[in-house]
Design a protein around this nucleic acid. Structure first.
Length: 713
DNA sequence: ACCGGTTTTATTTTT
DNA sequence: TAAAACCGGT
């Protein structure tokens, strides 16, 4: 069946049909960007471009998954569409590194270090250099290391952190290589290095991927742009889609410049501008336009809509952050009952993760189901990280971060002394700690026997975990090592014990699910395709290593999509999403134009200095506002308790930019507002419902019963 | 290894 | 202020 382009507006159609050469699609918020990309892919397929010649790159796994679905749905009868590679930058980098690991001198199953692992490594190195590892915030060091090695602009040269990081850099890279591990930056840098050193490899990829599409182009950093340029080669079939007004990742190296100067990098490109907004009511759009309009140096754009004006925005001033949260919770209850807006169509957006707390409490109190997105849950838990470290260490004992984490967990008599000695020996001999352990435990007189046992343990599970049935093997490992007992021991209260055990269990069951799904996939492929040639287009490896890689690249694993619940997340996490009703909270100076600290180490670039990140903060505000389809409520608190003492807060300057005729102001200070009757009723019903559930009665007729989305760590 | 009490330190966003 | 990190005693 043919793709129907008549449903697209003329600009969208242009963006779909211009298949050759560089194309810049400026896609305003809610202008149907994803739709355009999906159509473009399917259009290419219909024009006879083989699916495997198309590469679509996104930034998040969620976006990639969504895009895949969208394409599959649109392509309908073209089953081949599933061979289009839709991947994040990092996953794509991983794929290349994996395919070329030999040329890069990496073992077949290398670990991908996440931020925590990076910090652990940096800390170890600090100690090795005998720098007081408490004088530095390792997290910040890691951030600087990252900037240094992804070729970002150098920071203030005399900053002690810069100096320290510079000192650490070579050791850090050596450490990675010795471990046979890579970090996030490597996933982009190693392919680039490879391309530079082996032009024939570059050519392979160039001729494989002949049509490139990039989503959220405004968020690309230097390495990512470089990668795109290399891949596009002389063919230059590169279509980038993005919105300079939604560039919010400068602190991570993203440069708006990339989208603003696309036409200089790729002369002769076509440019399409999508300005019709299909998402928001007129009032919301006008307000958002007014806010973003103040930013200098943007690509001129004026979004318009055919939708009605909708209700006015609301600006709520609360006396305290608790009151702010209470108002939001009450309003959610009201809106979901009176206007029948389902909870899944409501979001609370904050600038920082820390702001979420009072809202969680208020929602729980009001009996509103919610889910917090972003502040990772399961994988932050110590016991889960321990188990993961076991898996990693068994698969690749050179992975020292993992190995050292678990040598003595649970205590098996390989204490700090022994480990320190082993590390020294390893350094002296220029080998890994694992080599010391496995080679000559006799030299570690004391613990040789125990080390022997540990080495045997790792070897045993190294084999078991590498192949089929790894989830079973993992369970066995947990049993043999006694991780449940360890978890119980490490907990004070009984419920805490239960939670820990539960956390381990849920990781294990995730492994089972994963393995099952993978087997299913393989079976499907065998059925649908006779060929076994299958050059494995998956960016990720098979089996457990694949799972672990995914884990590193996708912190927020499968959120329980189920159930109807309010979403609570940061503005950054909200990009690309939309809700009928949005609460944008903490509209205050210092919070929404966020003033982290006088100087920001992420952008010490050429200009930028005095203006702090005001432009980016403004964009962030714009992103938040444009998430709303029907109803937008801005809230602020008149004072906020900080460091124990109440601090008066001034309203965000962005509020001043919104035309007042679009806004209803509500002031919650003064005599206590009485709870509206509707809210009282709603609360009572919600309470009734939750009691019914507790008592095991038949399913309640009304709204979903109260239940918190996630326990606050 | 574990505990209890004391002292810091918090204040960004995340692939 | 509150939570985490820290310390020193068992």
């Amino acid at each position: 069946m043919a793709l129907d382009l008549s449903l697209l507006n003329p600009q969208q159609r242009q963006a779909v049909v211009r298949t050759e050469g560089p194309v810049l699609v400026l896609a305003g918020a809610g202008s149907g960007k994803t739709r355009v990309i999906a159509h473009r892919v399917v259009y290419l397929l219909e024009r006879g471009v083989p699916a495997r010649a198309i590469l679509a790159v996104t930034f998040t796994n969620k976006a990639a998954t969504e895009m895949k679905d969208r394409i599959a749905r649109l392509a309908g009868g073209t089953p081949d569409s599933r061979r289009v590679l839709v991947s994040t930058f990092h996953a794509f980098g991983l794929k290349i590194v994996r395919e070329q690991h030999e040329k890069l001198g990496l073992p077949a199953k290398f670990a991908v270090l996440d931020a925590g692992d990076q910090a652990a490594l940096a800390k170890r190195l600090l100690r090795e250099v005998k720098v007081d590892d408490k004088r530095f915030d390792v997290g910040r060091l890691v951030a600087i290391l990252s900037r240094l090695r992804s070729g970002g602009a150098p920071g203030h040269p005399d900053d002690e952190y810069e100096l320290c990081a510079g000192e650490l850099l070579p050791r850090y890279e050596l450490g990675l290589r010795a471990m046979g591990a890579v970090d996030f930056d490597d996933l982009l840098n190693l392919p680039l290095r490879l391309f530079a050193q082996h032009p024939e490899v570059l050519q392979t990829y160039q001729s494989r991927y002949r049509y490139l599409l990039v989503d959220e182009y405004q968020d690309t950093n230097g390495a990512q742009l470089e990668l795109l340029e290399q891949l596009a080669g002389v063919r230059r079939n590169l279509c980038v889609v993005g919105d300079d007004d939604q560039s919010i990742y400068a602190w991570r190296g993203a440069q708006v410049r990339h989208i603003l100067e696309f036409d200089r990098k790729f002369p002769g490109c076509s440019e399409v501008c999508l300005e019709q907004n299909y998402r928001s009511n007129g009032n919301i759009l006008d307000a958002a336009n007014a806010v973003i309009g103040k930013n200098p140096g943007r690509k001129p754009k004026k979004l318009w809509t055919e939708r009605g004006r909708g209700p006015n925005l609301r600006l709520v001033s609360a006396p305290s952050e608790e009151a702010e949260a209470r108002y939001v919770a009450d309003e959610i209850v009201r809106v979901s009952y009176e206007e029948k807006i389902p909870l899944r169509e409501i979001a609370i957006l904050c600038r920082t993760n820390a702001q979420a707390r009072p809202f969680e409490e208020a929602l729980r109190l009001a009996g509103v189901r919610y889910r917090v997105v972003g502040g990772t849950s399961l994988f932050d838990r110590k016991e889960v990280r321990d188990l993961i470290a076991y898996l990693r260490a068994a698969l690749n004992p050179r992975d020292e971060v993992a190995l050292l984490r678990i040598v003595n967990v649970p205590a098996r008599g390989i204490g700090d002394q022994t480990v320190a000695r082993a590390q020294e020996l390893a350094r002296a001999r220029k080998c890994t700690v694992w080599d010391v352990f496995s080679g000559a435990p006799a030299e570690l007189v004391y613990a040789s026997e125990r080390i022997g046992a540990f080495v045997a343990l790792m070897r045993k599970y190294g084999e078991k975990l590498a192949g089929k049935g790894f989830s079973e093997a993992a369970r066995e490992l947990v049993g043999e090592v006694g991780l449940f007992e360890e978890a119980r021991r490490g907990a004070q209260s009984l419920p805490a014990q239960a939670r820990k055990v539960e956390a381990i269990e849920s990781l294990l069951s995730q492994l089972i699910d994963y393995e099952k799904r993978e087997e299913q996939k393989v079976a499907e492929r065998l059925l649908s395709r006779s060929g076994l040639e299958e050059d494995d287009d998956e960016p990720f490896a098979q089996g457990l290593p694949g799972y672990l890689n995914r884990l590193a690249l996708d912190s927020k694993e499968a959120d329980g999509e189920d159930g109807d619940s309010v979403t609570l997340m940061t503005l950054h996490a909200a990009k690309g999403l939309e809700w009928r009703c949005v609460f944008l909270c903490g509209m205050e100076e210092g919070l929404l134009p966020h003033s982290g600290r006088g100087f920001d180490d992420s952008v010490s670039g050429p200009r930028a200095e005095g203006a702090l990140n005001l432009e980016e903060e403004r964009r962030l505000c714009y992103v938040g506002m444009t998430r709303a389809r029907e109803r937008l409520v801005l809230t602020r608190s008149v004072e906020r308790v900080r460091r124990g003492k109440p601090i008066p807060r001034t309203p965000s300057r962005f509020l001043d930019d919104i035309p007042s005729e679009l806004v209803d102001a509500i002031d919650l200070s003064g005599p206590r507002q009485e709870t509206p009757k509707a809210v009282q009723e709603a609360k009572a019903r919600s309470f009734f419902d939750s009691m019914s559930e507790l008592l095991g009665d038949a399913a309640p007729a009304g709204q979903a019963p109260a239940r918190p989305g996630r326990a606050p760590r």
